[in-house]
């Protein structure tokens, strides 16, 4: 019968219309600024730098190795190395970024900087409401604006942050063990040296045994 298909289609629409009053599943939109959908845990927007402890400058994990600057596809990271050094999380003195800028008007949220960073220093943020009227200044984030605490990282990506912390703790333990072993070895060597010195024949005394 002509028109059968249209009637069938209309029935489908009517079902959906009525259904949207009763079924949550059919109602997929929310009123955005008042109502929000929680962001997915893996969501990524723009990168930020992590610091440990209370002081953002002292705790910055980044050592200004400039790997991310080189690998970033649109080249929107700019780093200047510091002249002096500060201790990093295992206590080794390291240089730090004197300047670290990301131009988020160019950044394309690709996460490659995060993947290549060997120090777990840069991670992706989930903050997306960044609109500003200032094209150059407002979208150019400097080191201070980029630095966010490890606790913040835990609050946005809990699973990933826990993994990173475990990995860092292991590295730190390994580094400490190595340092300890090195110290022990040094002590031993010093002791041995001292012992050898003590046992060594006095200068001037005839060498025993000869050659």
């Amino acid at each position: 019968m002509l028109g059968e298909g249209i009637v069938k289609g209309m029935l489908e629409t009517a079902k959906n219309f009525a259904g949207s009053f009763v079924s949550e599943d059919r109602l997929t939109t929310v009123e955005y600024p008042e109502q929000r959908i929680p962001t997915a845990e893996n969501a990524r927007v723009f990168p930020f730098l992590i610091y440990d402890g209370p002081d953002w400058h002292a705790g910055l994990r980044c050592v200004a190795c400039q790997i991310c600057e080189k690998e970033c596809p649109p080249k929107c990271i700019y780093i200047e190395k510091s002249k002096d050094k500060k201790p990093d999380f295992v206590g080794k003195p390291q240089i730090y970024p004197a300047r670290f800028d990301i131009d988020i008007s160019v950044c394309m949220s690709c996460q490659i900087c995060v993947e290549v960073c060997p120090f777990e220093a840069i991670k992706m943020d989930t903050e997306f409401e960044l609109a500003t009227g200032d094209r150059f200044g407002g979208l150019l984030l400097d080191c201070r604006e980029l630095a966010k605490s490890n606790e913040y990282y835990h609050s946005i990506h809990p699973t990933e942050a826990a993994e990173v912390d475990a990995r860092l703790a292991e590295e730190k333990k390994a580094a400490e063990a190595k340092a300890k072993a090195a110290a022990a070895a040094a002590a031993q060597k010093a002791a041995a040296d001292a012992a050898a010195k003590a046992a060594a024949p006095k200068p001037g005394a005839p060498a025993a045994g000869g050659s």
Binding site: K75, I102, V106, F136, L140
Partner: peptide
């Protein structure tokens, strides 16, 4: 076009 993070080729 002005880019604040210019380095290398840019």
């Amino acid at each position: 076009e002005y880019e604040p993070t210019a380095h290398d080729a840019v």
